[in-house]
Design a binder for these strands. Structure first.
Lengths: 220, 220
DNA sequence: CTGGATTGTGATTCCTGGTTCACTCGTGGC
DNA sequence: GCCACGAGTGAACCAGGAATCACAATCCAG
């Protein structure tokens, strides 16, 4: 009755595949937390749930994270970092404002599709974080947003400062709408449509030139 | 040391203003819950907080609601109903698809600005509800969305079904972006910009005609 | 004026879920 | 092969917060 690893993965001691000691357990925990939290909300999932989904028991998670919120923080930190890196790579690359802006849009779409669940969690749970972490993340978020505004600004001279920010928020909001419902569209088509709508929000024609490749340019 | 009503409001027995028995206590509780939850997240606010903000003690809330989640449900039900009523009034009114669509956009913007906090709570907390309530609300949400799709469809013959839904989601996402940051813009200007961007997402020129007035047409 | 229903209070209960702990087991270095 | 250490386990602990209860104050009928 005991010792039978219940869940899928069946990370059994002897069974095929990974041994009881999983070197990437930490990753699996993060993935599990992201997955569960995006569906049911972070506070409704217990350590037991997260552990189970990651192939261990609830208390075992504490071998990898100090607390439950530490998991959340790690998760959100990571996705925010990913956005920043993308933006950094874009802005460091060649091209004019138009090209840069379009590249920013495309990179955000990429993250929204690839890291869908984590980004959804971010959007819903930042404000539940303890003061300090929240501040830090919000600051990063503001920087990221500022990158967009800075590039958009010369293209939309008709907009005041606050209006530029609103436009950027709206564009990102449009992109992230895909986080909250399953369109069922093929990823390419999805990306294409989001791209068009984000640009429409910004009031800027998309740069036809694919622009600087944001892919792993400045990351590694 | 006891019996001194600690909190602000000082809803004291004799003091000026409202008596200890507030006829609209229920409303104040809902308002308080919306306010607090929109800032700190629903699960991080306690019954004590809600009560305090509403001028009573935590346990007193149970005179008006059966449980904590009952408050949330009442809140979300209400905002969803408001959206529906608006859409119903719009569609019942005169005008072609263009006019209807623009009116839908404007009504959603109105709700997003007026009921800002409740809508924000909705967006973040629907999926934490118990199965049954969640289903019900999601169904209503789908109906509402369907209203938009139905009107948009003839205007965007180039889009497939799933693509129409995506566009609507994106437009609403753009509008609701205003829920999550303080633009500081004047409400009229804010509404104007959101209107433009939502239409841009939908790929439809806004109807210049103000269209049918959604205001309290079919509500009372 | 009086009795009953309603609203509000403070203390108490109770339980969920995060966290800790003592212990076991597998692994990797010597 | 042996030892030390890190990963995983199950039981126990514990706090915080939702919910309950007995009681007081208020309002409204009749």
């Amino acid at each position: 009755m005991p010792t039978v690893p219940t869940t899928a993965a069946a990370a059994g001691t002897t069974a095929g595949g990974r041994s009881r000691r999983d070197p990437e357990r930490r990753e699996r925990i993060l993935a599990a937390a992201a997955q569960l939290a995006s569906r049911r909300g972070f506070h409704t999932v217990g350590m037991a749930d997260i552990g189970a989904e990651a192939g261990i028991v609830g208390s075992g998670v504490y071998r990898h994270f100090d607390s439950k919120t530490a998991i959340l923080v790690a998760l959100l930190d990571r996705v925010m970092a990913r956005l920043q890196e993308g933006a950094g790579a874009v802005l460091a690359g060649p091209g004019d404002e138009r090209a840069h802006l379009s590249a920013l849009v495309r990179d955000h779409i990429r993250v929204a599709i690839e890291d869908r669940s984590v980004l959804a969690v971010y959007h819903r749970e930042v404000h539940t974080l303890p003061e300090e972490d929240r501040r830090r993340l919000r600051r990063l978020q503001r920087h990221y947003l500022e990158d967009w505004v800075h590039v958009l600004s010369p293209l939309r001279r008709d907009l005041a400062d606050g209006e530029l920010r609103l436009a950027v928020h709206a564009a990102i909001g449009a992109i992230q709408s895909t986080l909250f419902f399953r369109s069922g569209l093929a990823p390419e088509r999805l990306a294409e449509l989001l791209d068009g709508m984000a640009h429409a929000c910004l009031g800027v024609e998309p740069a036809t030139d694919p622009g600087p490749e944001p892919a792993d340019a400045a990351i590694e």
